[in-house]
Amino acid sequence: NITNLCPFDEVFNATRFASVYAWNRKRISNCVADYSVLYNLAPFFTFKCYGVSPTKLNDLCFTNVYADSFVIRGDEVRQIAPGQTGNIADYNYKLPDDFTGCVIAWNSNKLDSKVSGNYNYLYRLFRKSNLKPFERDISTEIYQAGNKPCNGVAGFNCYFPLRSYSFRPTYGVGHQPYRVVVLSFELLHAPATVCGPKKST
């Protein structure tokens, strides 16, 4: 009989979030998941669920729940959905087409922007091929755009693959930082360890 609440607040209220290319994953298990708490945590810009209804979450049980978190800019949030393409979905964080879970995003301009520009958040701009779903690539190998090998040196047709967002508070919403948490629900042929409040007794 599990009584402890799932530590969603640790994920959502973390002081620092990860850069999207090096997104963070927390496995959540053996706890009571009260998803209604999430609705009250922040004024969400996005709370979209796929393959599951957000209002039914509190009635369900899962084997595992994974919470992935990272920062992107406002106009990239739409890429965090099944079947999307674009720089983020292709080279940084890719959801599977049959994704079961929820994408939660909110504006973090007050936390993640600086007047002089916050350069701490990076994204991958160049990659030889698209990522597979939930693949994480943290390599910093020089990207070869031409025929000549780069031998690890940046220059003509040889690019450092990561680029930094420079978040400034005066930017338009599309270029402001957004914190994203992706909850993916895993149903294996194994005992369910993460249940809503109704199912945990």
Rank of each mutant, 00 (worst) to 15 (best):
I2N: 13
L5T: 11
L5M: 11
P7V: 09
P7L: 09
F8E: 02
E10D: 10
V11F: 06
V11G: 02
A14E: 08
T15R: 10
T15W: 00
R16P: 06
F17D: 05
F17E: 04
A18N: 13
A18S: 12
Y21L: 04
Y21V: 06
A22M: 09
A22Q: 09
W23F: 08
R25A: 02
K26C: 07
K26M: 09
R27G: 05
R27N: 14
R27H: 11
I28H: 02
N30A: 08
N30H: 10
A33D: 04
V37Y: 12
L38V: 10
L38Y: 03
N40E: 11
A42F: 10
P43C: 06
F44V: 13
F44S: 15
T46D: 11
T46N: 10
T46Y: 15
F47M: 15
K48I: 06
C49P: 00
Y50E: 01
Y50S: 01
G51D: 02
V52Y: 06
P54I: 15
T55H: 14
K56S: 10
L57W: 06
D59S: 13
D59W: 07
L60H: 10
C61T: 07
F62H: 08
T63A: 11
T63V: 09
V65M: 15
A67R: 00
A67F: 05
D68C: 02
D68V: 02
S69N: 03
R73Y: 05
G74S: 05
D75T: 06
I80N: 03
I80T: 03
A81F: 01
Q84E: 11
Q84V: 10
T85G: 08
G86S: 04
G86C: 02
N87W: 08
A89F: 01
D90N: 12
D90H: 06
Y91I: 05
N92K: 03
K94T: 07
D97N: 11
D98R: 07
G101L: 01
G101F: 00
G101V: 00
G101C: 01
C102T: 00
C102E: 00
N107K: 06
S108H: 04
S108E: 06
N109K: 10
N109G: 07
K110T: 12
L111M: 13
D112P: 02
S113Q: 07
K114C: 10
S116V: 12
N118H: 11
Y119S: 15
L122R: 15
Y123P: 03
L125D: 13
L125F: 13
N130D: 10
L131C: 04
K132T: 09
K132V: 08
P133Q: 05
F134T: 05
R136D: 03
R136M: 04
D137V: 01
S139F: 01
E141V: 08
E141A: 10
A145W: 10
A145P: 06
N147R: 12
N147D: 14
K148W: 10
K148M: 12
P149E: 12
C150K: 05
N151A: 12
G152H: 09
F156K: 15
F156D: 15
N157C: 08
C158W: 02
Y159Q: 11
P161Q: 01
R163D: 08
R163E: 11
S164V: 08
F167C: 04
P169D: 12
P169L: 03
T170Y: 11
T170F: 10
G174S: 14
G174F: 08
G174M: 14
H175C: 10
H175L: 10
Q176T: 04
P177Q: 04
P177N: 03
V182A: 01
L183R: 00
L183P: 00
L183M: 06
S184W: 12
E186T: 09
E186A: 05
E186Y: 06
L188N: 15
H189Y: 09
A190H: 12
A190I: 09
T193Q: 12
K198A: 14
K199A: 15
S200V: 14
S200A: 14
T201N: 15
T201A: 14
